[in-house]
Design a protein around this nucleic acid. Structure first.
Length: 805
DNA sequence: CTCGATACAATTTTT
DNA sequence: TTGTATCGAG
């Protein structure tokens, strides 16, 4: 890695300082955050308070005051946030200077560090990785874990690979390895999991592969154990900035501390902290109220503890909101106040009062969707565009009804989330080729492509080859090279393997001299992948070809970009491919690139974080949908609070108009369920809500002579919100929710009524277990059963046949 | 080895 | 209802 050049930058600074748009147009607190000097800085930034603006301006300011661009590290959680920050920086600095700043996601930064230095990492069990490691995504990692489970003769039904993967992942993000977890394992199951963990980790090492968590974990380990490397990054990065700080987990926090303070945990105890911050700083920006990923290991207590960990810190609050109307902000405030764990903070409006929030109660999810569609058309007649509208919901399944309503009315829409580019089969296939070319030890990718396109090398053949490989402790690829030594293979199979190996060897050689896009070209042509897809000639194959083409253009773009050059000067071909693979493995949505189309946006509340729309619909505001069933009766009260934070995020996305919609009846998984209005609507100030009863009006207008079934409830949508919560009314709804009526409908065999916690039950597959938890009541419920043999399972009694013993 | 039938489970998903 | 994972027949 090139040493940054610390020569004074007079000419540069002067040029930039004359550019006073770095500090102009900021409010008082924003300005002090931007121009803050050395030391730890915590910026508590409410929604819509100009946080990205402050971060980018601060970076520009630091550079203009003499810090080298390459001495600044800005870390985000998503690629999208990173590229947005880069874009914004381009507006303040010339591109070639801005490109020298390290802006990236945690994983990206770690990937780069490890790509360069992983060979220096020594693990206690002797495992090692080399710089051409590959990154395994969740599905790669799941399949490796599945293999490990089966290799240990464990039942894949008891140890479900997916959930074991999640479990191991959360262990890793807390800093455990297989051994340290094994030491604290509480029961038989955990002991077995620690064994799977151990084997999985060994397999990863064998494949020279790392999963997402390893990127973080091993970067931290490396910086902890290797002083030289630690010092390099510490000296290099004089300023570290962290976005969305409330979403950091322990490992990520440790990483930035190692880089910024340059001290290991031990060293921190006896170091004079006052000299730590000479000519350097750490800036963290976050909002506890927007922490919505704790279920993924994010821990907002880290931001709460920041001031303790960094006693020299300064706290700046950005409370002025430039996004939403006063009504919207007061609603958000009033809802979030119901949470206990937070930093007290109010959103100060800068905009006018605006309109009341519009509530709509629908008969069912179809009417709800129709309402959204109709309102969209109505809004379009005033001055709004499609792209001004965002429709938010709790679960992806809710999008369907809305989509159908929009299609019917020819309203253009885009869905954010759901499918991901890198998860598409064809993309994974092609990337697997690249991975094997780059790192032949990667047997996960190798197994993926060995019979794609079909070469007559199926499961049975593979088992034979793997058996031989394991016996001789060869990698799979090495075994393929010496396929003649493998017993029990037909001549045809051997020829097939030889052809495949020949292809791969050719591609490996080609990779040394070809550009990535040319290499892709060769892969597609020589493997027959492209031909096969073209021959198919279906709509599906057309789309796949288009996706591959998109990958191709990503490669082109990558080669043209200067990012790589900024990190290693003039990379060799090999690191070039490695960097490309790092980037592509960590990339989620390429679709993000093409925006600004005039369509309304449908997305989950989670994915809406960081976005804003003049008009926002929050749909499905029902108890059980949002807040989600599983959080309502959870033993952990933080789960409900997290749902509330999610609501807060949703509300604060709106700039001008906000809609709350819900349905009394909703079809989910085929059967319909009745629910009450969400507590989050109740938590909003009633005087800021208004009802709009589109459904009835429409039907009367259309002469459909529809009489609402429950007139009392309808009053809610006619401004009289108090009506909704009168007990009489609630009764009516709950009566319909008697689960017995439902159970008999669905499965005649189960005549039992309610379950209670502690009940012993029998499941036809899982055997005997004890009910540990019951989520929700009435018809719509889930039970958490701890089975003797299979561990805990979450079951829906309507589908799972549970017999009370 | 490949394809189709059957069973089964069911938030959210930055990387 | 829908997606997927597994198993058995051709």
């Amino acid at each position: 890695m090139s040493k940054p050049n610390y020569m004074p930058l007079k000419h540069l600074s002067n040029k930039l300082l004359s550019n006073d748009n770095i500090t102009s147009g900021l409010n008082e607190n924003q300005l002090s955050a931007v121009t803050y000097g050395s030391g730890p800085l915590l910026i508590v930034a409410g929604a819509g308070s100009g946080k990205t603006r402050v971060l980018t301006h601060r970076i520009a300011y630091l550079i203009s005051s003499g810090f080298m661009p390459e001495s600044i590290l800005a870390v985000t959680f998503t690629n999208k946030a990173a590229s947005e920050m880069k874009e914004r920086l381009y507006q303040l600095l010339s591109k070639d200077i801005a490109d020298l700043v390290w802006i990236g996601t945690f994983h990206n930064v770690c990937g780069r560090i490890l790509r360069h230095d992983i060979s220096k990492l020594l693990l206690s069990n002797g495992e090692r990785w080399t710089s051409n490691f590959v990154i395994y995504d969740e599905s790669d990692s799941t399949s490796l874990i599945k293999e490990s489970i089966l290799a240990l003769d464990l039942d894949g039904k008891v140890y479900v690979p997916k959930s074991i993967r999640g479990f191991i992942s959360s262990l890793k993000s807390q800093g455990y390895d297989a051994k340290s977890f094994g030491d604290i394992a509480k029961n038989h199951r955990e002991v077995k999991i620690s064994e799977v963990f151990d084997l999985y980790q060994k397999e990863l090492a064998k494949n020279n592969g790392l999963d997402f968590d390893d990127l973080l974990l091993y970067s931290v380990k490396l910086l902890e154990q290797n002083e030289k490397t630690r010092n390099y990054y510490h000296k290099r990065f004089q300023h570290v900035l962290v976005d969305e700080f409330q979403d950091t987990n322990l490992i990520q926090y440790e990483l930035i501390r190692l880089i910024s303070e340059g001290l290991t945990k031990e060293e921190r105890k006896n170091t004079d902290r006052s000299i730590l911050w000479k000519e350097r700083g750490i800036t963290t920006v976050g909002d506890v109220d927007q922490s919505i990923y704790s279920w993924r290991g994010a821990d907002f207590r880290i931001i709460l503890g920041f001031q303790n960990d960094f006693p020299e810190n300064t706290l700046i609050k950005l409370e002025k909101n430039y996004r939403s109307t006063e009504t919207i902000l007061n609603t958000a405030d009033s809802i979030i106040k119901n949470n206990t764990e937070r930093i007290e903070k109010t959103l100060l409006p800068t905009k006018s009062k605006g309109e009341k929030i519009i509530c709509f109660e629908a008969d069912d999810e179809i009417e709800e969707a129709q309402y959204v569609a109709k309102e969209t058309l109505r809004l379009l007649k005033s001055d709004f565009k499609y792209s001004d509208i965002g429709v938010l919901y709790r679960t992806n399944a809710q999008s369907r009804a809305i989509e159908e309503a929009l299609i019917k009315r020819n309203i253009p829409y885009q869905i954010v989330g759901g499918f991901r580019f890198y998860e598409r089969k064809e993309i994974k296939d092609i990337i697997s080729y690249l991975k094997v070319i780059y790192n032949p030890s990667d047997s996960v990718s190798l197994k993926r492509i060995i019979n794609v396109p079909k070469r007559g090398l199926g499961a049975t053949t593979l088992i034979k080859i793997e058996e031989y490989a394991n016996k001789n402790n060869f990698t799979l690829y090495k075994t393929l090279l010496e396929i003649k030594d493998v017993p029990d293979l037909s001549e045809r199979t051997i020829v097939s393997v030889q052809n495949f190996v020949e292809l791969m060897e050719y591609l490996r050689k080609a990779s040394k001299s070809l550009s990535i896009s040319d290499l892709l070209d060769q892969i597609l042509k020589k493997s027959g992948y492209w031909d096969e897809l073209e021959k198919e000639g279906t709509l599906d194959s057309e789309e796949r070809l288009a996706n591959i083409q998109e990958l191709y253009s990503v490669a082109n773009e990558f080669e043209a970009s200067s990012v790589v050059k900024a990190i290693h000067e003039l990379p060799q071909q090999e690191t070039f491919l490695g960097d490309f693979l790092t980037q592509i493995s960590l990339y989620t949505e390429l679709d993000n690139l093409k925006q600004t189309t005039n369509k309304i946006t449908l997305t989950t509340l989670h994915l809406a974080k960081g976005l804003e729309y003049p008009i926002v619909f929050i749909c499905g505001l029902e108890e059980g949908v949002f807040p989600h069933l599983r959080s309502i009766d959870s033993l952990d009260k933080n789960e409900l609070e997290e749902e509330r934070r999610l609501m807060y995020v949703g509300v604060t996305r709106a700039k001008e108009k906000l809609y709350f919609t819900y349905a009394r009846e909703r079809r989910l998984f085929g059967s319909s369920e009745y629910s009450q209005v969400s507590r989050f609507i109740e938590e909003a100030p009633k005087e800021l809500l208004s009802g709009f009863y589109g459904g009835l009006d429409e039907k009367i207008k259309n002469n459909k002579s529809h009489i609402p079934k429950k007139n009392i409830q309808r009053k809610y949508s006619e401004y009289e919100i108090d009506e909704l919560i009168i007990p009489d009314n609630v009764q009516k709804v709950t009566k319909l929710r008697d689960p017995r009526a439902h159970i008999t409908q669905h499965s005649e065999s189960s005549t039992q009524s309610f379950f209670d916690i502690g009940d012993k039950v029998q499941h036809e597959k899982f055997g005997v277990g004890i009910i540990e938890q019951i989520f929700g009541q009435g018809e719509k419920n889930l039970v958490n059963v701890d089975f003797e043999k299979y561990g805990k399972k979450l079951l829906d009694p309507r589908y799972a046949k549970l017999i009370k013993l």
